[in-house]
């Protein structure tokens, strides 16, 4: 690319950026805060219910809560509700573990017509796979460091 073109592109980008509609961050954050907060509160309710009924350890109770939340996220995605919540809530429904479940179910459903092996099963982790890769790899590195020091 010539220098002229690079300059032209740079000034065009600047011009476009000045025209791009700006998201209403305050409104988006309020939505994210409330929806995210509500999902976590539901998690807490589930946690307390399990704790009061069954005699699991605290750690096991947390694990069961995670199972329940993943089920809820997956189910709401299946019946077509989660994308409607997500449109308003943004990060409020993306960041909770229910959003992780959404990122698994949505591509899996979408690619059903490509078959149950290369469609559903292979596409399932197109968004969630990276989360596992980075989460697990980070924990291994931290574990090795912890062992050494």
């Amino acid at each position: 690319m010539s220098k002229n073109q690079a300059n032209r592109n740079k000034s065009y980008e600047k011009y476009v950026n000045s025209k791009v509609p700006k998201p209403n961050i305050l409104k988006n954050c309020l939505w994210a805060f409330f929806v995210g907060g509500i999902i976590c509160t539901i998690g807490q309710v589930v946690h307390n219910l399990i704790e009061s009924i069954y005699k699991y350890t605290h750690l096991d109770t947390s694990n069961i809560t995670t199972l329940v939340m993943i089920f809820l996220g997956a189910f709401l995605t299946g019946i077509g509700v989660y994308d409607i919540i997500g449109k308003k809530a943004g990060a409020g429904s993306l960041i909770p573990i229910t959003g992780f479940a959404n990122s698994i179910v949505a591509p899996a459903m979408e690619f059903k017509r490509e078959g149950y092996v290369m469609g559903v099963a292979a596409k399932m982790f197109s968004l969630a796979g990276p989360v596992l890769v980075y989460g697990i790899s980070t924990s291994v590195i931290i574990g090795i460091l912890y062992y050494i020091f």
Binding site: P23, G78, G80, Y82, D83, G86, K87, G90, A106
Partner: peptide, 10 residues
């Protein structure tokens, strides 16, 4: 995917 709960940019 259609059911993905993301926000479309403006």
């Amino acid at each position: 995917p259609l059911e993905s709960g993301n926000q479309r940019p403006l």
